[in-house]
Write a protein that binds this DNA or RNA. Structure first.
Lengths: 242, 242
DNA sequence: TGTACATCAGTGAACGCGCGTTCACTGATGTAC
DNA sequence: TGTACATCAGTGAACGCGCGTTCACTGATGTAC
């Protein structure tokens, strides 16, 4: 059932690349069906018409397969966010708030379309699996896409100052938030109130998406899109985006 | 190794109750170690010194055990929140904001102390397991504890009106939020802006806790308690609590 | 262009494992008279 | 209070299952001369 398109004069390297691709695609399909904890090497092998031991030519172990899936998922989500952010910026360069909201909707859309991939990234850890360091880098991509919007607004002098009295944080914690700004490499976050507002908007956004995916809001809300839009928009406004 | 305390003149009924308790305790211990997806009936049986088939005298199936654990966990979390809320109200009856924040900290504390139980409730679904209807009721207990604080503040006339311009929501969505108020049986939520603010505060709170548990904020924040306090406090303020 | 050898993809059998669940049984606890 | 029967907790063997991983193998693709 595999595509027969020019498999004939394929070099070994090409075949390897193609089959690796098919294998990962099958793994993603299976992940989408049964979730990460239920993912099985044997089943993946079956799906691409291979004997179970053959997948070891392409993947070191089940753990490595999971790691690859995690990285791919972070990248897919990150790319989605970046695309949405760029498109919004191109369409209407100084509408920072709309850009933030559009990016948020793209993130939500991706998550609802790929619930098990979202859960692989943000849900329960897979029993017996410990994510290696390689997964940290890709993880920051979405976050950077969001923070970048705030950074751009600030750089253009369009970021409104925090409303209300300054947050009552200890000097140590203010200091820590400043360090975070350095890590993130965005001085916007150097203002404690802005840093807090970004962290608030970020966690609320992912919190609501998570609730939606795991059905916590069933019987409570019908129009999830409207709720998401309203809450995200409000927090983006609080954070100074216009 | 079981307690021998008056096991001698125990009635059958008493023994059944005690052993069921031991069984659930063992299941909870195992859940805490390996997580819900890794929970095994046989291992639970082993831990209480029984042959695997014997646990079927106490539990219908693995699924039923999971259901019971879910209900117990929701109840434990709900009770924790209620206790914290009541204690804060008793200590300082009109400090609504502090009461909210104290309750939030209690919820977070419980979650950090019982990460796998938190994930059982709010994390990835267990493969092959579908939660039955019985788990919905207990699930609302925490939510009610929080909403109750806002309700009490409003009833006492202490809830500040929403600051800023009213949220720009469609009539249909405003309507839906009103319906939600009826379901929750708290008219506070009849004001769309307040309802939105409550939903925002609620999802941010659980979002941040989830991020902490699954380690999303590693390398970004050190003092998680300070971050949690600052963000939760701010959103509680926005929602009108003082 | 042709041959000799090395590399590599995929096979099939096997390993040892742990799981949920069923079933016929034994022996102890409870109940009716 | 004593006996006869019914209920129930726990046993031990067995079922069928799917899993991850290893290993010696075959045959095809690539490479050096």
């Amino acid at each position: 059932m595999r595509q027969t398109v020019d498999m004939a004069h394929e070099t070994r390297q090409e075949a390897r690349a193609r089959i690796t691709g098919e294998l990962m695609a099958a793994a993603r399909r299976q992940l989408a069906e049964v979730g990460a904890a239920g993912l099985s090497l044997r089943e993946v092998a079956r799906e691409i018409g291979m004997v179970s031991s053959a997948v070891y030519r392409y993947v070191e172990s089940r753990d490595e397969l999971l790691t690859r899936l995690i990285i791919e998922s972070y990248d897919a989500l990150g790319a989605t966010a970046e695309r949405a952010s760029a498109a919004a910026a191109a369409a209407s360069p100084d509408a920072d708030l709309d850009r933030w909201v559009a990016t948020a909707h793209a993130i939500r859309r991706w998550s609802l379309d790929h619930p098990h991939e979202h859960l692989l990234l943000y849900g329960s850890p897979v029993p017996g699996y410990a994510a290696p360091e390689d997964t940290i880098g890709p993880a920051t991509r979405v976050t950077f896409a969001l923070v970048g919007i705030v950074g751009d607004a600030a750089a253009a002098g369009r970021l409104a100052p925090p409303a209300g009295p300054p947050a009552d944080v200890s000097p140590e914690f203010a200091n820590e938030l400043a360090t975070l700004a350095a890590v993130i490499e965005h001085d916007v976050l150097a203002i404690p109130d802005t840093a807090l507002a970004v962290l608030t908007a970020w966690t609320q956004m992912f919190g609501l998406i998570g609730f939606e995916i795991t059905n916590q809001t069933r019987n409570m809300v019908m129009d999830h899109t409207a709720l998401f839009d309203a809450t995200v928009r409000r927090l983006a406004h609080h954070l100074g985006l216009r």
